[in-house]
Computed example of a mutant assay.
Amino acid sequence: MARTKEFDPDAALQAALELFWQRGYEATSIADLVEHLGIGRASIYATFGSKSELYLKALDRYDEMRDPGLIAELSRPGPALPGVRTMFRRFAAESTAEDSRLRGCLVSNTAAELGPHDAACARRVERSWDHLETLLHASLVRAQAQGELPADRDPRALARMLLVLAQGLRIVGKASTDPARVHDAAEQALALLD
């Protein structure tokens, strides 16, 4: 007869996500997970698989929690560029806010820590970046169609530039104690949309 789980797997996954986000993959041991989740090693393995599988599930959860406001900002009726500017400035603000700065973005953290040598993580990072790039591209195409963006600009290339710079803002914001570095860079990027 199978034993019933004495913990909430959903809450445990959220707790694992928070720990990985705070410490990173390599710096989080199974012992750390056992202590932080308050469940046994065997329960972790039985429910989530290996540490690597648990990390992938946590990264998927993070992706599912994607800011719903982002889609709303970039798809409001009317002018499109204000939404792009708002989103980019919000990324800069989040990157320098003391309460979130040290954690950074889990996708950016994963790209830097695991992306070069973990194909499953790299695919998830690419999926997240593809999503953001697609949202930005659609907004910039709309901006161009509405006359907000000059006709000689390439919306795809601009979307990619903004994506790369947004990820850079996340990394620099996490490591720098000078918020002006991030905010000045964000404003210079946005000036390219004029």
Rank of each mutant, 00 (worst) to 15 (best):
M1P: 15
M1D: 15
A2S: 14
A2Y: 11
R3K: 15
T4I: 10
D8K: 04
P9S: 02
A12R: 13
A12I: 13
L13K: 06
Q14G: 03
A16V: 01
A16T: 02
L17S: 02
E18F: 06
E18P: 07
F20N: 02
R23K: 14
L33M: 12
E35K: 00
L37E: 10
I39P: 10
R41D: 14
S50N: 06
L54E: 09
L56R: 13
K57F: 00
A58S: 14
M65S: 12
D67S: 15
I71E: 15
I71D: 12
E73V: 01
P77G: 08
P79C: 03
G83D: 04
V84Q: 05
V84I: 10
T86H: 13
R90L: 06
S100C: 12
L102I: 07
G104C: 00
G104S: 00
G104K: 00
C105K: 02
N109Y: 09
A112G: 05
D118T: 05
A119F: 03
R123T: 12
V125M: 04
R127M: 09
W129V: 08
E133C: 11
E133T: 11
T134E: 12
L136M: 10
H137S: 07
V141T: 11
A151S: 05
A151M: 01
D152P: 00
D152H: 07
L158T: 01
R160C: 01
L162W: 09
L162D: 02
Q167Y: 13
G168L: 03
I171W: 15
T177G: 14
A185E: 12
A186Y: 05
A189P: 11
L193D: 14
